[in-house]
């Protein structure tokens, strides 16, 4: 399988950013962003989707952590 070209990369990143913006707007409620999710999945290799999902989790955690809102006990019960 050939690596995505620059054009394909940009299409994938664009779809990802739109999906992420939707999640931002709807407090991470994926059910409300289903249409953008499928366009994101259609634009990126499967492996990248997994990677970007993890990356979003990480970025959210980082944001929370840096804002000082992170509570270890809460995260343990959540996960």
């Amino acid at each position: 399988m050939a690596a995505p070209s620059r054009k394909e990369r940009q299409a994938c990143w664009g779809a990802r950013d739109e999906y992420w913006r939707c999640l931002d707007a709807h407090a991470e409620d994926a059910a409300l962003c289903r249409r953008l999710r499928s366009s994101f999945e259609a634009s990126c290799p499967q492996q990248w989707i997994k990677y970007f999902d993890k990356r979003r989790d990480y970025l959210k955690f980082k944001e929370k952590f840096e804002a000082g809102q992170f509570q270890p006990s809460e995260s343990t019960t959540n996960s």
């Binding site: 399988m1 290799p45 499967q46 492996q47 997994k50 990677y51």
Partner: peptide, 8 residues
């Protein structure tokens, strides 16, 4: 590797 033999 995933089903597509893709990996990071």
């Amino acid at each position: 590797k995933d089903e597509d033999q893709d990996y990071i």
